[in-house]
Amino acid sequence: MINLESNIGKPADDEPAQERAILKCCDLSMLYEPGKGFENANLEIFSGEVLAIVGESGSGKSSLLKTLSAQIDSQHGSLNYFPASSTTSLNLKNISEAKRQSLIRSDFGLVHQHPMDGLRSRVSAGGNIAEPLMQNGERNYEQLRAQALHWLDAVEIDCDRIDDLPTTFSGGMQQRLQIARCLVTQPRLIFMDEPTAGLDVSVQARLLDLMRKLVKQLQLSVVLVTHDLSVARLLSDRIVVMQKGKIVEAGLSDRVLDDPQAPYTQLLVSSVLQS
């Protein structure tokens, strides 16, 4: 049962995020063929931070995201998850597929680039939000409705639309609905793959505003893949830059964007400035 008095309305906590790793990968590689995928990735994701993975298309950032979120297997290296309930970490490569799936369902959230990839087209908006709760055993219809209304409100969708099909929504609304569906189970770690890429500029701005608000209020831990440095600047605490399947630079967002060290990052930052 999820407490309706969730912390969405609470003021942002000014204290720095707790420095505890949730997910850690060492020498992680997944090469589909030479030049496709990524290799030797070393990363830690801390509780309450937003980590942006940036790079141009084909740099391996989406493959890295899919591997980190345990959607696909890796060839080499280790991937460890630190569950809230335990002090020891779980090696995601060694646990059974069933256990991995149940962990993904309870602890991970996934936001796809195309909202309909993460939504059911023939199920109402309310049903889409309520499904993950039902998956986790919630069996009270009124509670499910209340949760759906709460999260529709949280992502700024009119509560009258609760029984409408997502196919009748605009692209921006669909994306917000997908985010609501993802957040309803209060996952510990959220993976987003280019969540703003398919949207008009004005719609993008509104979504980014909303995402920034939710990230702060709910203290979400997020891994965000984007090709857009301004999205990374707006949302992320830290940035990882990828080029040709390798991490070429990593650091605090402001530092990476204002004082890029790697030549490739310098090129990336300057090209944004010029355009």
């Binding site: 069933a98 799936q101 369902r105 059911r120 993950p132 039902m134 998956q135 069996r139 219809y141």
Partner: peptide
Amino acid sequence: YSDYGSMQVKLY
């Protein structure tokens, strides 16, 4: 994976 949420959604 006992992935039966979708069935319950139908009833919802």
